[in-house]
Amino acid sequence: MHPARKQRLILVVLLVVLSTVAVGFVTYAMRANMDFFYAPSAFAAGEVPFEKRIRAGGCVVPGSVVRDGESLDVRFALTDGEAELEVVFNKILPDLFAEGEAAVVTGKLQQGGYVRADQVLAKHDESYTPPEVAETMVGKADCHGDPKI
């Protein structure tokens, strides 16, 4: 093999190896910042890891919102039509948060079987349901009890 060709081949192989290592490091670093979405039925089945940052969503169960009179603590339940998930949140809820409406929470599953949320997202208009929630509700009633097609 000609020395110039051999040098180019070594350079190309080195670039491929370095690129692969760089992509591996970036992917590994991003793993810590990924939030995986789980439906309430996944919590009931025990598929969700404890103390790992996750996202959960569903419809807020009517009558489940309980506010603490002395602090900002709020407890409510989310459902996907199969199971319910209790959520504890200690900040101000979004203005559009309401019972019977879709919501997505970000937080950690606690040993007591509830999610301690650090963020609550509520839908932004009457006809919108977050895509993650819509996927978990396929074939079930929507947040207002209307059957899905």
Rank of each mutant, 00 (worst) to 15 (best):
V21W: 08
E135Q: 15
E84V: 07
V88Y: 15
I10C: 09
S127T: 11
E132H: 08
V120A: 02
P147C: 02
E70P: 00
L11F: 06
A77W: 02
D118T: 09
G112A: 15
E126C: 00
A32W: 08
E47Q: 15
V23L: 10
E82S: 07
E84L: 04
G107Q: 04
A4D: 13
V60Y: 04
D73W: 11
G107A: 03
P40R: 02
A32P: 00
I92W: 10
D73M: 11
R8S: 06
S19Q: 10
A122D: 06
V105S: 03
G58T: 04
D35P: 00
E86C: 01
D95R: 15
I149K: 15
Y114R: 05
V23F: 05
V115T: 02
K148D: 15
E132N: 10
G24Q: 12
A42L: 03
V66K: 15
S19I: 00
T79K: 11
V74I: 09
L9S: 08
V138D: 08
V12T: 11
A45D: 15
D125V: 00
P62C: 01
P49T: 03
D118Q: 06
Q110W: 14
V104S: 06
L9C: 04
R31N: 11
T106A: 11
A83V: 06
G81R: 07
T136V: 08
G112M: 11
G57E: 08
V105H: 07
V88D: 10
L109F: 09
M34V: 12
Y128S: 06
G69R: 10
H2S: 15
E126I: 02
A134D: 13
A83I: 06
K140D: 11
A42T: 05
E99T: 05
V13F: 13
L93Y: 05
Q119C: 02
T106K: 14
Y28N: 08
E82R: 12
A22C: 04
K148R: 15
H144D: 07
E101N: 04
D68L: 06
F50A: 03
E135A: 14
R116N: 09
V16S: 12
S64P: 00
D80V: 01
H124K: 10
F76A: 01
E82F: 08
T27H: 15
V48D: 01
C59L: 02
Q7W: 11
